[in-house]
């Protein structure tokens, strides 16, 4: 079964959607969308470094993504507005990454594969990395779920309950770096944030509890991955962007649904 590249691609997409769902909910609730973007864009620098030093791309991109996320966490609240800071860091990381890739001689790199993903080329090894990473992310968030939610609602409420919101922020940061690293192959660095935010946003009108929203986001993400892949196959379109398009259409549909519900 795993011999079929389409099956491997679908499993890869589902794995990313699985990790992105609970994390994406927190990204939406905590208004970290741009933070996700910055972390993802930094990963291209990680790709360049991995190629230069012949390291695993997974490890390299995860390390740089984590470093980026930590730098943002440390710098936030030190004189710059958060969106300015993230705008500077996200785009400079992307630019430096692209420049660094061009320095690597001898290796012919298909840059598009890292910017937009290359889900149809997912190998068995990639699959185990993706599913392993996704399992770690979901386990991490599941373990800290109540503490993360409390810290998201109010920092002082968290302190009063004996929860350190800074530690919970670090948990999310680590989860984000892992997710970025496993999602590069599937949707590429430019569209990772979309896989985090769009399924979660689409799930919002359907949910009454945080857990419900995470599950709904997971289902929407997995559905988008399978339908998007199918569409890419039928219409001969790029796979990663097609997945994101399906997620976006789902978002539109649930938003309209909410509009109707509010009218009644």
């Amino acid at each position: 079964m795993l011999d079929d590249f389409m099956v491997r691609a679908a499993l890869a997409g589902i794995g990313v959607a699985f990790a992105a769902a609970p994390l994406g909910c927190f990204v939406v609730w905590r208004r970290m969308a741009y933070f996700g973007d910055a972390t993802a864009h930094a990963a291209i620098l990680g790709v360049a470094l991995s190629l230069a030093f012949s390291m695993s791309i997974f490890v390299g991109s995860m390390a740089v993504a984590l470093l980026m996320a930590l730098v943002v966490s440390v710098l936030s609240g030190r004189g710059y507005a958060m969106d300015t800071l993230l705008g500077v860091l996200a785009h400079s990381a992307l630019a430096f990454g692209l420049v660094a890739v061009s320095f690597i001689s001898g290796v012919r790199i298909d840059l598009m594969a890292y910017l937009f993903g290359d889900i149809l080329a997912v190998s068995r090894g990639d699959l185990s990395v993706i599913w392993g990473g996704a399992a770690v992310v979901v386990a991490l968030i599941g373990w800290r779920w109540s503490a993360l939610l409390t810290a998201t609602l109010n920092e002082d409420l968290a302190y009063a309950s004996g929860i350190n919101p800074k530690r919970e922020q670090l948990v999310l940061t680590i989860a984000l770096a892992i997710t970025v690293a496993v999602a590069i192959k599937v949707v590429g660095v430019l569209l990772i944030a979309a896989m985090l935010i769009i399924p979660a946003a689409a799930a919002r009108p359907l949910s009454r509890t945080p857990e419900g929203m995470a599950v709904a986001a997971g289902l929407i993400g997995m559905l988008s991955a399978t339908i998007g892949l199918r569409a890419a196959y039928v219409f001969d379109t790029p796979a990663g962007p097609s997945i994101v398009c399906v997620a976006a259409i789902t978002f539109l549909a649930t938003s309209i649904l909410r509009g109707f519900r509010h009218q009644r």
Partner: peptide, 27 residues
């Protein structure tokens, strides 16, 4: 044992949560 009531806190519209789920967060 200390019970803490914060200043009015802002709940983001994007976070769906019922009162009972909120109270169960304490574990």
């Amino acid at each position: 044992k200390i019970g803490y009531v914060p200043q009015k806190l802002h709940i983001d519209e994007t976070l769906p949560i019922t009162v009972s789920r909120f109270l169960k967060l304490l574990g």
